[in-house]
């Protein structure tokens, strides 16, 4: 791959890392989501930096950014926009909602009603909004960063599988390391979010996305992806295996991983490392294995176990 591309990616990563201290692997996953034209679901306990990550990524790109705080009374029109009667022209004029931005932060997405959640479906999948017999294209690049809290379930509406399937990766941030957290406490070197400068233009992001699609995937690696996906479909531990959309997501994410690693070709490690973030949220673990609130953890463990079993191409 060309050096400038790698340089751009490194610049983006280091910019985000200025705010999200001590979590380079999470920053890498967020960048992968961006390069692969995917959407991210960031799930973790409050206060670990979910919103900060989304915000930092958005600010690092010279792109429009909107944050939508999802609440139980939020309506689809609040995010998509509405048509308002214009008395002067005598016609209905469309007023785009906050979704019409390059980066959309859907904060606490599981707090809103399924109706509002599903209004995001078309936008996430087809990069457009259909309203009142009109279709409005969304600006490019377009990326949804959604966050949710896995612990507080009271008054929440868990995302349905169909919606989960539309997220390329599900990321867990986790607590920072001891030294990292001390650094945060110290406040030295941590840049306030507001001071973050954009390091990548929207056009550069689109170029990087186009380059990602060209990353070479050797034939046997397709078999490897299929091997993993089929293992989830056969596994007695899972009720629902990975869909073809899921296998495609894994491949795209692997290409982006290779790109972020400075390679023009995918290696088995790209696929293996991304299997959990790309697939775990797409499967349903058998009920007897579920612990209250621990289904997601179980899914990750199952996928991880399966991946270790699938033979790697040589």
């Amino acid at each position: 791959m060309s050096t400038p591309s790698l340089e751009l990616i490194r610049r983006l990563e280091s910019n985000v890392a200025r705010v999200l201290v001590g979590k380079p692997e999470v920053v890498r996953l967020a960048v992968i989501g961006l390069l692969a034209r995917g959407h991210l679901l960031i799930e973790d306990v409050p206060g670990v930096g979910k919103t900060t990550l989304a915000h930092a990524l958005a600010r690092s790109l010279g792109a429009t950014f909107q944050r939508i705080q999802f609440t139980s009374d939020l309506l689809p029109s609040d995010i998509l926009g509405v048509s308002i009667y214009d008395a002067k022209t005598g016609e209905f004029a469309f007023k785009p909602g906050p979704l019409f931005s390059n980066i959309v932060l859907a904060d606490e997405i599981n707090r809103t009603t399924p109706k509002t959640q599903s209004s995001l479906l078309e936008a996430m999948n087809e990069f457009q909004v259909s309203l009142d017999h009109h279709t409005y294209p969304l600006p490019r690049p377009f990326m949804v960063l959604a966050t949710q809290n896995p612990l507080e379930y009271a008054g929440t509406h868990p995302l349905p599988e169909s919606q989960l399937d539309r997220f390329l990766l599900k990321i867990r941030i986790g607590y920072p390391g001891r030294s990292g957290e001390k650094e945060i406490l110290r406040g030295a070197g941590v840049v306030p979010l507001g001071q973050l400068e954009p390091v990548l233009s929207a056009d550069e992001v689109m170029d990087l996305q186009a380059a990602t699609e060209k990353v070479r995937v050797e034939e046997s690696l397709l078999d490897y992806v299929m091997g993993i996906v089929e293992a989830t479909r056969r596994s007695p531990l899972l009720t629902l295996g990975v869909s073809p959309r899921g296998s495609l997501a894994l491949l795209r994410a692997a290409q982006a991983h290779a790109m972020a690693d400075g390679r023009e070709y995918v290696v088995p490690d790209d696929i293996k490392q991304l299997a959990v973030p790309a697939l775990a949220h797409r499967v349903i673990v058998k009920a007897r294995l579920e612990r209250p609130g621990g289904a997601e953890v179980e899914a990750e463990a199952v996928i991880d176990g399966l991946v270790q079993e699938v033979p790697v191409p040589r």
């Binding site: 290696v267 490690d269 293996k272 270790q308 079993e309 033979p311 790697v312 040589r314």
Partner: peptide, 10 residues
């Protein structure tokens, strides 16, 4: 010897 699910890097 590499295991069945072990990549070259691992």
């Amino acid at each position: 010897s590499p295991g069945p699910g072990e990549t070259a890097r691992e």
